[in-house]
Amino acid sequence: MSAPEIFPVFRHRHLLGIAGLTPPDIETLLDRAEGFVELSRQADKKRATLRGRTQINLFFEASTRTQASFELAGKRLGADVMNMSVGNSSVKKGETLIDTAMTLNAMHPDILIIRHSSAGAAALLAQKVSCSVVNAGDGPHEHPTQALLDALTIRRAKGRIAGLVVAICGDVLHSRVARSNILLLNALGAEVRVVAPSTLLPAGVSRMGAIPFTRMEDGLADADVVMMLRLQRERMEGGFVPSVREYFRHFGLDARKLAIARQDALVMHPGPMNRGVEIASEIADGPQSVIERQVEMGVAIRMAVMEALLDPRRNDGNLAA
Protein backbone atom coordinates (compact mmCIF):
# COMPACT_ATOMS: atom_id res chain seq x y z
CA MET A 1 0.00 0.00 0.00
CA SER A 2 1.31 3.47 -0.87
CA ALA A 3 1.98 6.01 1.84
CA PRO A 4 -1.20 7.79 2.95
CA GLU A 5 -1.68 11.20 1.43
CA ILE A 6 -1.36 14.19 3.74
CA PHE A 7 -4.49 16.33 3.83
CA PRO A 8 -4.94 19.65 5.60
CA VAL A 9 -6.52 19.42 9.04
CA PHE A 10 -10.30 19.78 8.90
CA ARG A 11 -11.19 22.92 10.84
CA HIS A 12 -14.59 21.84 12.12
CA ARG A 13 -15.50 19.79 15.14
CA HIS A 14 -18.86 18.69 13.72
CA LEU A 15 -20.41 18.21 10.32
CA LEU A 16 -23.86 19.69 10.83
CA GLY A 17 -24.43 20.98 7.33
CA ILE A 18 -22.86 22.20 4.13
CA ALA A 19 -23.56 25.73 5.36
CA GLY A 20 -20.38 26.89 7.05
CA LEU A 21 -18.04 24.83 4.88
CA THR A 22 -15.68 26.63 2.52
CA PRO A 23 -14.95 25.35 -1.00
CA PRO A 24 -11.50 24.11 0.17
CA ASP A 25 -13.17 22.24 3.07
CA ILE A 26 -15.43 20.51 0.57
CA GLU A 27 -12.67 19.78 -1.96
CA THR A 28 -10.50 18.28 0.75
CA LEU A 29 -13.27 15.93 1.88
CA LEU A 30 -13.82 14.85 -1.72
CA ASP A 31 -10.08 14.29 -2.18
CA ARG A 32 -9.89 12.23 1.00
CA ALA A 33 -12.83 10.14 -0.19
CA GLU A 34 -11.08 9.25 -3.48
CA GLY A 35 -8.64 7.10 -1.59
CA PHE A 36 -11.44 5.30 0.21
CA VAL A 37 -13.17 4.51 -3.07
CA GLU A 38 -10.04 2.64 -4.11
CA LEU A 39 -9.69 1.01 -0.70
CA SER A 40 -13.27 -0.22 -0.76
CA ARG A 41 -12.68 -1.94 -4.08
CA GLN A 42 -9.80 -4.00 -2.70
CA ALA A 43 -10.15 -7.38 -1.09
CA ASP A 44 -8.81 -6.05 2.21
CA LYS A 45 -11.00 -3.03 2.89
CA LYS A 46 -9.99 -2.28 6.44
CA ARG A 47 -7.82 0.39 7.95
CA ALA A 48 -6.98 0.96 11.59
CA THR A 49 -7.33 4.74 11.52
CA LEU A 50 -10.17 4.78 14.05
CA ARG A 51 -9.14 1.73 16.07
CA GLY A 52 -10.30 2.15 19.66
CA ARG A 53 -12.72 4.92 18.73
CA THR A 54 -16.44 4.55 19.38
CA GLN A 55 -19.05 5.57 16.84
CA ILE A 56 -22.74 5.67 17.77
CA ASN A 57 -25.42 5.81 15.10
CA LEU A 58 -28.45 7.50 16.63
CA PHE A 59 -31.35 7.22 14.23
CA PHE A 60 -34.66 8.71 15.37
CA GLU A 61 -36.03 8.10 11.88
CA ALA A 62 -35.65 4.71 10.34
CA SER A 63 -33.19 4.67 7.45
CA THR A 64 -31.69 1.31 6.67
CA ARG A 65 -29.53 2.58 3.83
CA THR A 66 -27.94 5.60 5.46
CA GLN A 67 -27.42 3.79 8.74
CA ALA A 68 -25.79 0.83 6.96
CA SER A 69 -23.55 3.19 5.02
CA PHE A 70 -22.32 4.94 8.17
CA GLU A 71 -21.89 1.62 9.92
CA LEU A 72 -19.83 0.16 7.10
CA ALA A 73 -17.75 3.33 6.90
CA GLY A 74 -16.95 3.22 10.59
CA LYS A 75 -16.12 -0.48 10.56
CA ARG A 76 -13.81 -0.14 7.57
CA LEU A 77 -11.90 2.48 9.53
CA GLY A 78 -11.64 0.15 12.51
CA ALA A 79 -14.06 1.95 14.84
CA ASP A 80 -16.39 0.22 17.27
CA VAL A 81 -19.85 0.94 15.92
CA MET A 82 -23.04 0.90 17.93
CA ASN A 83 -26.48 1.34 16.39
CA MET A 84 -29.27 2.99 18.37
CA SER A 85 -32.53 2.97 16.48
CA VAL A 86 -34.73 5.04 18.68
CA GLY A 87 -37.52 5.21 16.17
CA ASN A 88 -40.49 7.45 16.56
CA SER A 89 -41.96 5.93 19.68
CA SER A 90 -44.80 7.38 21.69
CA VAL A 91 -42.25 9.20 23.81
CA LYS A 92 -42.10 12.83 22.85
CA LYS A 93 -39.31 13.07 20.35
CA GLY A 94 -37.51 16.08 21.78
CA GLU A 95 -37.32 14.68 25.29
CA THR A 96 -35.87 11.53 23.89
CA LEU A 97 -33.30 13.49 21.96
CA ILE A 98 -31.87 15.43 24.90
CA ASP A 99 -32.22 12.59 27.38
CA THR A 100 -30.61 10.13 25.01
CA ALA A 101 -27.87 12.60 24.20
CA MET A 102 -26.92 12.98 27.85
CA THR A 103 -26.98 9.24 28.39
CA LEU A 104 -24.84 8.56 25.36
CA ASN A 105 -22.43 11.31 26.25
CA ALA A 106 -21.73 9.61 29.53
CA MET A 107 -20.48 6.61 27.53
CA HIS A 108 -17.73 8.77 26.01
CA PRO A 109 -18.30 8.14 22.33
CA ASP A 110 -15.91 9.78 19.88
CA ILE A 111 -18.46 10.45 17.19
CA LEU A 112 -22.25 10.55 17.05
CA ILE A 113 -24.16 10.16 13.82
CA ILE A 114 -27.68 11.52 14.13
CA ARG A 115 -30.80 11.33 11.97
CA HIS A 116 -33.88 13.14 13.28
CA SER A 117 -37.17 14.41 11.88
CA SER A 118 -36.74 17.95 13.23
CA ALA A 119 -34.64 20.66 11.61
CA GLY A 120 -31.87 21.76 13.94
CA ALA A 121 -31.83 18.51 15.94
CA ALA A 122 -28.18 17.80 15.05
CA ALA A 123 -27.15 21.31 16.09
CA LEU A 124 -29.02 20.94 19.39
CA LEU A 125 -27.33 17.61 20.05
CA ALA A 126 -23.93 19.10 19.24
CA GLN A 127 -24.46 21.69 21.99
CA LYS A 128 -25.09 18.99 24.57
CA VAL A 129 -22.38 16.42 23.92
CA SER A 130 -18.63 16.59 24.07
CA CYS A 131 -17.83 14.53 20.96
CA SER A 132 -18.07 15.16 17.23
CA VAL A 133 -21.51 15.08 15.68
CA VAL A 134 -22.37 14.23 12.07
CA ASN A 135 -25.78 15.25 10.78
CA ALA A 136 -27.24 12.32 8.85
CA GLY A 137 -30.38 14.32 8.06
CA ASP A 138 -32.36 16.73 10.27
CA GLY A 139 -35.91 17.17 9.05
CA PRO A 140 -36.06 19.22 5.87
CA HIS A 141 -32.89 21.12 6.80
CA GLU A 142 -29.64 19.44 5.71
CA HIS A 143 -28.09 16.10 4.83
CA PRO A 144 -24.47 17.04 4.22
CA THR A 145 -22.96 13.62 3.55
CA GLN A 146 -25.56 13.05 0.82
CA ALA A 147 -24.54 16.29 -0.93
CA LEU A 148 -20.88 15.34 -0.57
CA LEU A 149 -21.39 11.89 -2.05
CA ASP A 150 -23.42 13.42 -4.87
CA ALA A 151 -20.58 15.83 -5.56
CA LEU A 152 -18.04 13.01 -5.52
CA THR A 153 -20.17 11.02 -7.96
CA ILE A 154 -20.48 14.00 -10.30
CA ARG A 155 -16.81 14.95 -10.08
CA ARG A 156 -15.67 11.42 -10.88
CA ALA A 157 -18.05 11.16 -13.86
CA LYS A 158 -17.58 14.66 -15.26
CA GLY A 159 -14.10 15.53 -14.02
CA ARG A 160 -15.33 18.81 -12.54
CA ILE A 161 -18.28 20.52 -10.91
CA ALA A 162 -17.71 24.18 -11.77
CA GLY A 163 -19.74 25.25 -14.76
CA LEU A 164 -22.03 22.22 -14.84
CA VAL A 165 -25.79 22.65 -15.01
CA VAL A 166 -27.49 20.58 -12.30
CA ALA A 167 -31.28 20.25 -12.24
CA ILE A 168 -32.72 19.13 -8.89
CA CYS A 169 -36.24 17.88 -9.55
CA GLY A 170 -39.17 17.07 -7.30
CA ASP A 171 -40.14 17.75 -3.70
CA VAL A 172 -37.63 20.52 -3.01
CA LEU A 173 -39.85 21.94 -0.26
CA HIS A 174 -39.42 19.02 2.11
CA SER A 175 -35.98 17.94 0.95
CA ARG A 176 -32.84 18.19 3.06
CA VAL A 177 -30.97 16.64 0.14
CA ALA A 178 -31.98 19.58 -2.06
CA ARG A 179 -30.91 22.18 0.50
CA SER A 180 -27.50 20.64 1.07
CA ASN A 181 -26.96 20.16 -2.66
CA ILE A 182 -27.95 23.74 -3.49
CA LEU A 183 -25.39 25.00 -0.98
CA LEU A 184 -22.61 22.66 -2.04
CA LEU A 185 -23.05 22.95 -5.80
CA ASN A 186 -23.17 26.72 -5.54
CA ALA A 187 -20.01 26.72 -3.45
CA LEU A 188 -18.22 24.73 -6.15
CA GLY A 189 -19.48 26.88 -9.01
CA ALA A 190 -22.24 24.85 -10.66
CA GLU A 191 -25.45 26.34 -12.02
CA VAL A 192 -28.22 24.94 -9.86
CA ARG A 193 -31.83 24.68 -10.99
CA VAL A 194 -34.82 23.38 -9.07
CA VAL A 195 -37.73 21.93 -10.99
CA ALA A 196 -41.05 21.27 -9.25
CA PRO A 197 -44.68 22.33 -9.09
CA SER A 198 -44.89 25.61 -7.18
CA THR A 199 -46.53 23.88 -4.21
CA LEU A 200 -43.29 21.94 -3.69
CA LEU A 201 -40.89 24.90 -3.95
CA PRO A 202 -39.82 26.67 -0.73
CA ALA A 203 -40.46 30.39 -0.27
CA GLY A 204 -37.54 32.46 -1.45
CA VAL A 205 -35.90 29.58 -3.33
CA SER A 206 -34.44 31.86 -5.99
CA ARG A 207 -32.54 33.72 -3.29
CA MET A 208 -31.16 30.42 -2.01
CA GLY A 209 -29.01 30.14 -5.11
CA ALA A 210 -31.23 28.02 -7.33
CA ILE A 211 -33.12 29.00 -10.46
CA PRO A 212 -36.71 27.76 -10.15
CA PHE A 213 -38.57 26.06 -13.00
CA THR A 214 -42.09 24.66 -12.95
CA ARG A 215 -41.79 22.63 -16.18
CA MET A 216 -39.34 19.79 -16.69
CA GLU A 217 -39.17 20.75 -20.37
CA ASP A 218 -37.59 24.07 -19.43
CA GLY A 219 -35.61 23.02 -16.39
CA LEU A 220 -33.85 20.09 -18.03
CA ALA A 221 -32.66 21.94 -21.13
CA ASP A 222 -28.84 21.68 -21.34
CA ALA A 223 -28.63 19.96 -17.95
CA ASP A 224 -25.45 17.98 -17.25
CA VAL A 225 -26.94 16.33 -14.19
CA VAL A 226 -30.56 15.43 -13.44
CA MET A 227 -31.00 14.84 -9.75
CA MET A 228 -34.36 13.37 -8.81
CA LEU A 229 -35.83 13.68 -5.31
CA ARG A 230 -38.10 11.27 -3.54
CA LEU A 231 -41.75 12.31 -3.17
CA GLN A 232 -43.34 11.04 0.03
CA ARG A 233 -46.55 9.13 -0.64
CA GLU A 234 -48.60 11.16 1.83
CA ARG A 235 -47.75 14.36 -0.03
CA MET A 236 -49.09 13.33 -3.39
CA GLU A 237 -52.69 12.60 -2.59
CA GLY A 238 -54.16 16.05 -2.81
CA GLY A 239 -51.98 17.80 -0.24
CA PHE A 240 -49.31 19.19 -2.51
CA VAL A 241 -50.06 17.52 -5.85
CA PRO A 242 -53.41 16.04 -6.85
CA SER A 243 -52.36 12.51 -7.73
CA VAL A 244 -49.50 10.20 -8.53
CA ARG A 245 -50.43 9.88 -12.18
CA GLU A 246 -50.61 13.64 -12.66
CA TYR A 247 -47.26 14.06 -10.95
CA PHE A 248 -45.56 11.36 -12.98
CA ARG A 249 -46.94 12.79 -16.22
CA HIS A 250 -45.45 16.21 -15.56
CA PHE A 251 -42.56 15.67 -13.18
CA GLY A 252 -41.62 11.99 -13.37
CA LEU A 253 -38.36 11.36 -15.21
CA ASP A 254 -39.00 9.29 -18.30
CA ALA A 255 -37.13 8.88 -21.58
CA ARG A 256 -38.94 11.75 -23.24
CA LYS A 257 -38.05 14.25 -20.55
CA LEU A 258 -34.51 12.95 -20.12
CA ALA A 259 -33.94 13.51 -23.86
CA ILE A 260 -34.25 17.25 -23.21
CA ALA A 261 -31.13 17.19 -21.04
CA ARG A 262 -27.64 16.80 -22.50
CA GLN A 263 -27.04 13.45 -24.14
CA ASP A 264 -24.41 12.55 -21.55
CA ALA A 265 -26.43 13.84 -18.61
CA LEU A 266 -26.12 11.86 -15.39
CA VAL A 267 -29.28 10.62 -13.68
CA MET A 268 -29.10 10.63 -9.89
CA HIS A 269 -31.42 9.77 -7.02
CA PRO A 270 -30.67 9.72 -3.27
CA GLY A 271 -32.90 6.69 -2.75
CA PRO A 272 -35.07 4.98 -1.89
CA MET A 273 -36.81 5.40 -5.24
CA ASN A 274 -40.52 5.41 -5.97
CA ARG A 275 -40.38 3.79 -9.39
CA GLY A 276 -43.19 5.09 -11.56
CA VAL A 277 -43.69 8.15 -9.36
CA GLU A 278 -40.66 10.36 -9.71
CA ILE A 279 -38.63 8.13 -12.00
CA ALA A 280 -39.40 5.48 -14.62
CA SER A 281 -37.74 2.11 -14.06
CA GLU A 282 -36.09 2.13 -17.47
CA ILE A 283 -34.35 5.39 -16.58
CA ALA A 284 -33.38 4.30 -13.08
CA ASP A 285 -31.72 1.21 -14.53
CA GLY A 286 -30.59 2.88 -17.77
CA PRO A 287 -27.10 3.73 -19.02
CA GLN A 288 -27.17 7.32 -17.77
CA SER A 289 -28.08 6.31 -14.22
CA VAL A 290 -25.35 6.56 -11.58
CA ILE A 291 -27.69 5.71 -8.73
CA GLU A 292 -25.76 2.62 -7.64
CA ARG A 293 -22.51 4.53 -7.93
CA GLN A 294 -23.93 7.07 -5.46
CA VAL A 295 -24.37 4.31 -2.89
CA GLU A 296 -20.75 3.27 -3.35
CA MET A 297 -19.54 6.86 -3.01
CA GLY A 298 -21.64 7.18 0.16
CA VAL A 299 -19.44 4.79 2.09
CA ALA A 300 -16.25 6.49 0.88
CA ILE A 301 -17.52 9.96 1.76
CA ARG A 302 -18.59 8.89 5.23
CA MET A 303 -15.17 7.33 5.83
CA ALA A 304 -13.57 10.59 4.72
CA VAL A 305 -15.80 12.69 6.96
CA MET A 306 -15.21 10.58 10.05
CA GLU A 307 -11.47 10.37 9.46
CA ALA A 308 -11.32 14.14 9.01
CA LEU A 309 -13.35 14.85 12.17
CA LEU A 310 -11.30 12.43 14.27
CA ASP A 311 -7.93 13.45 12.81
CA PRO A 312 -5.41 12.90 15.65
CA ARG A 313 -3.49 15.99 14.52
CA ARG A 314 -6.41 18.10 15.63
CA ASN A 315 -6.09 20.25 18.67
CA ASP A 316 -9.67 20.88 19.69
CA GLY A 317 -8.84 24.17 21.33
CA ASN A 318 -8.01 25.76 18.00
CA LEU A 319 -11.00 24.62 16.01
CA ALA A 320 -14.04 26.42 14.79
CA ALA A 321 -17.35 25.04 16.05
Binding site: A19, A119, G120, D138, G139, P140, H141, E142, R176, R179, P202, A203, G204, V205, R207, M208
Partner: peptide, 13 residues
Protein backbone atom coordinates in the same frame (compact mmCIF):
# COMPACT_ATOMS: atom_id res chain seq x y z
CA UNK B 1 -42.24 33.46 9.67
CA UNK B 2 -42.49 32.21 6.11
CA UNK B 3 -39.68 33.30 3.86
CA UNK B 4 -36.12 32.75 2.80
CA UNK B 5 -34.83 32.37 6.33
CA UNK B 6 -37.32 29.63 7.20
CA UNK B 7 -36.52 27.90 3.94
CA UNK B 8 -32.80 27.95 4.70
CA UNK B 9 -33.36 26.50 8.17
CA UNK B 10 -35.66 23.82 6.80
CA UNK B 11 -38.49 25.05 9.03
CA UNK B 12 -42.08 25.33 7.88
CA UNK B 13 -43.20 28.90 7.46
Amino acid sequence: NEGLFASMLGLSG
